[in-house]
Amino acid sequence: MVFICSVATAQLPINWIDPLNEGVLQGRLADNDITGYNRLPDSVKSVVREPVWALGTNNAGVYVNFKTNAKEIQVRYTVSGALDMPHMPKTGVSGLDLYASNNNGEWYWTPGDYRFKDTITYSFGPVKENSHRIYRLYLPLYNTVTWMEIGVSSDATIEFQKEEESPIIIYGTSIAQGGCASRPGLAWSNLLGRALNTPVINLGFSGNGRLEKPIIDLIANTPSRVIILDCLPNLTGVTPENTERIDSLIQAAVYQLRASQPNTPIVLTDHSSGFNKNILDETDNTLYEQTTQAGLASFEKLKQAGVKNLYHLRNADIALDINSTVDYAHPNDFGMVKISDAYQRLIEQFLR
């Protein structure tokens, strides 16, 4: 849909558009049963745990694509949660991020002038006018947008773009949700989407990415290009009982997904931390390493059983170091790039 309005005045008014009303939100499940800017459909509210539902109202990975010839882009919106966290700034928890791509797939970034008040505002630009450029506006990672409008000068045009390709779906933890990127575009899922130029759906739930059946059901029913299961950081434990639980959850998830999508590549991921001799906290190292070993054993069992198109992203391939996290679990921006790069290298091996 194209919006055009021309007013010959010294200072033109702003034309404000609500992306929710236009039905142009990207990066979430294709389900008409989704309320507001949520990531999960209303139909699962009664079957997922309360924390999962609450986190599903956060907007991690949700974005809007559009073309415009405007030199400045304004956004105003409100959120329902706290603006920041002790280890993550307002710009990551509650902020926006604006990127743009050209016809050759090259990406650009537009810094924003922001004000965090009851109504949050971002002003992007001025930028060089280009009606062929496709902008991508990322929504907050750890907050819930309750209302939003995108504004351009009333003599400019804005045309929203919708993607039709099958997505990469990520089921994970706080790390997948985006903790602790300084801004939304630097969450590893969003980095990966731009690197591979493919839609990505982020089903990361802070502290609650536990390979639970209601979420696996949603993924199984969504035709996908790749499915990533990155839940080990929320399944940590060193007891034999926990090792058995990890194996049971992984086996159930993979077999259900394989039955629904026989040819879709599935990636099982190690805990991104651990195996680091330069970390002095032996307790965390041991915990993360034993969790990874339990996941690896389950992966090998599935491979021996003949499960096809099953891949493994190793801790060593991610290679987080002592400069990569804020707390030896949640990556900073540098760690986010490392994670995205590792996934990109792996996925490009089988999506050629």
Results as ranks from 00 to 15, higher is better:
3 F>S: 09
5 C>T: 09
6 S>M: 12
6 S>Q: 13
7 V>N: 15
8 A>M: 10
17 I>F: 01
21 N>Y: 00
23 G>T: 02
25 L>P: 01
26 Q>F: 00
27 G>N: 07
27 G>C: 03
31 D>H: 13
33 D>L: 00
35 T>W: 00
36 G>L: 01
38 N>C: 02
40 L>M: 07
46 S>A: 14
59 N>E: 08
65 N>D: 09
66 F>S: 05
66 F>G: 04
67 K>W: 04
67 K>I: 01
67 K>N: 13
67 K>R: 14
72 E>I: 07
73 I>Q: 06
79 V>P: 05
87 H>G: 01
89 P>S: 11
89 P>K: 08
91 T>E: 15
105 G>D: 14
109 W>F: 09
119 T>I: 12
121 T>F: 05
122 Y>D: 14
123 S>D: 13
127 V>Q: 15
131 S>Q: 12
134 I>E: 13
136 R>F: 01
139 L>M: 09
143 N>P: 02
144 T>P: 00
146 T>H: 04
148 M>Y: 00
149 E>V: 02
152 V>I: 15
156 A>Y: 04
156 A>V: 00
158 I>P: 01
159 E>R: 02
160 F>E: 03
168 I>F: 06
169 I>A: 02
169 I>W: 04
169 I>N: 05
169 I>K: 03
169 I>H: 06
178 G>T: 10
178 G>P: 06
179 G>T: 15
182 S>K: 13
182 S>V: 11
185 G>H: 08
186 L>V: 11
189 S>N: 10
194 R>E: 11
204 G>I: 03
211 L>P: 02
211 L>Q: 05
214 P>K: 12
216 I>H: 11
220 A>C: 11
220 A>Q: 12
221 N>E: 15
224 S>Q: 15
227 I>Q: 05
229 L>T: 07
240 P>D: 11
241 E>Q: 14
242 N>R: 08
246 I>N: 02
248 S>I: 06
252 A>W: 11
252 A>G: 12
253 A>W: 08
257 L>I: 10
268 L>N: 05
275 F>A: 01
288 Y>W: 15
289 E>A: 14
299 F>E: 12
301 K>G: 11
306 G>Y: 13
307 V>Y: 09
315 N>Q: 15
316 A>D: 11
316 A>V: 04
319 A>N: 13
319 A>H: 08
320 L>I: 10
328 Y>E: 13
330 H>K: 08
331 P>M: 03
331 P>W: 03
333 D>L: 07
337 V>L: 12
341 D>L: 01
344 Q>D: 09
345 R>N: 08
350 F>Q: 04
352 R>G: 08
